[in-house]
């Protein structure tokens, strides 16, 4: 059988918004998946030339080395404030932050909360992997009760260290939030659902419907001391019950959106 090139259709290729380079992320880490999903959505919506990204402090500090559009890099936790500054100067541009759990919901709690409360027209990609990855696996505000980390060696003791924060639920209480959803990157089906949520988040921004955030439950094989397959099972068994997936806030204007 002869295959005619003109009959072939490209169904999968490297996104334009993602530079074709090696990343510094650990093997098995889902940052790569999250990056790709964001880049695919930006490509599909044709936003690359209008995008300004804000990297945070943590594993994704070098996100600007991978996304192929204008990027700035913020102090720890302050990305939503910097994004606010950018968006107020360029209201017609698309502004996103990419933040981890330590960055966003520990040191940056005030900045994210007020950005959401103001209905700041930015999109936040929030990576929740239940620990501080960059500094070597310490307890984060998202670390589960009983979860062992390098700074909770006997497991997170809620009597002493308190309870994890469910950021999506918390931010969804704010009137300024247009779209808040939690998805997971532990299997192909959920990855597809995550992409849809990311698309909805950017649609929220483009339509001027307020603050949008997608929380992505992610794995950290290196610091969890599990291989990638075991990490996805750990996420499924331990994180999903504590961090239920779902839409926590959907602006009425988004409800009939089809893409």
């Amino acid at each position: 059988m002869t295959i005619h090139l003109e009959d072939m259709q490209v169904i999968y290729q490297h996104p334009e918004s993602l530079l074709n380079v090696n990343t510094h992320y650990c093997p098995g880490c889902t940052h790569g998946v999250a990056h790709r999903l964001v880049a695919e959505v930006i490509d599909e919506m044709n936003l690359r030339n209008d995008c300004i990204g804000v990297a945070s402090v943590g594993c994704s500090v070098f996100a600007y080395n991978y996304f192929d559009f204008d990027f700035i890099q913020s102090p720890h936790g302050r990305a939503p404030a910097m994004a606010t500054g950018v968006k107020r100067v360029h209201p017609d541009k698309v502004v996103l932050t990419y933040q981890g759990d330590g960055d966003m919901i520990s040191i940056g709690t005030a900045e994210i909360t007020h950005a959401a409360a103001r209905g700041e027209n930015i999109t936040v990609i929030f990576i929740n992997n239940a620990n501080y990855g960059m500094t070597g696996g310490q307890m984060a505000p998202t670390t589960l009760p009983g979860q062992k980390t390098t700074s909770s060696p006997k497991g997170r003791d809620v009597e002493q260290a308190g309870y994890p924060i469910r950021a999506s639920e918390m931010l969804a209480t704010l009137d300024g939030a247009g779209y808040i959803a939690r998805r997971s990157l532990h299997d192909p089906k959920n990855i597809r659902l995550a992409k849809k949520a990311i698309r909805t988040a950017f649609e929220t921004q483009v339509r001027g419907l307020g603050f949008s955030m997608v929380e992505l439950l992610s794995i950290c094989p290196t610091n969890w001391h599990l291989n990638p397959a075991a990490s996805t099972r750990w996420l499924e068994e331990n994180m999903l019950p504590y961090y239920p997936l779902g839409d926590y806030k959907v602006h009425p204007a988004l409800k009939d959106l089809k893409f």
Partner: peptide
Amino acid sequence: LQAESELGAINMVYGAACA
């Protein structure tokens, strides 16, 4: 914009300056 704190304010300025 009235920020949530001086930390917020200076980082908004930082963002606007970068922009």
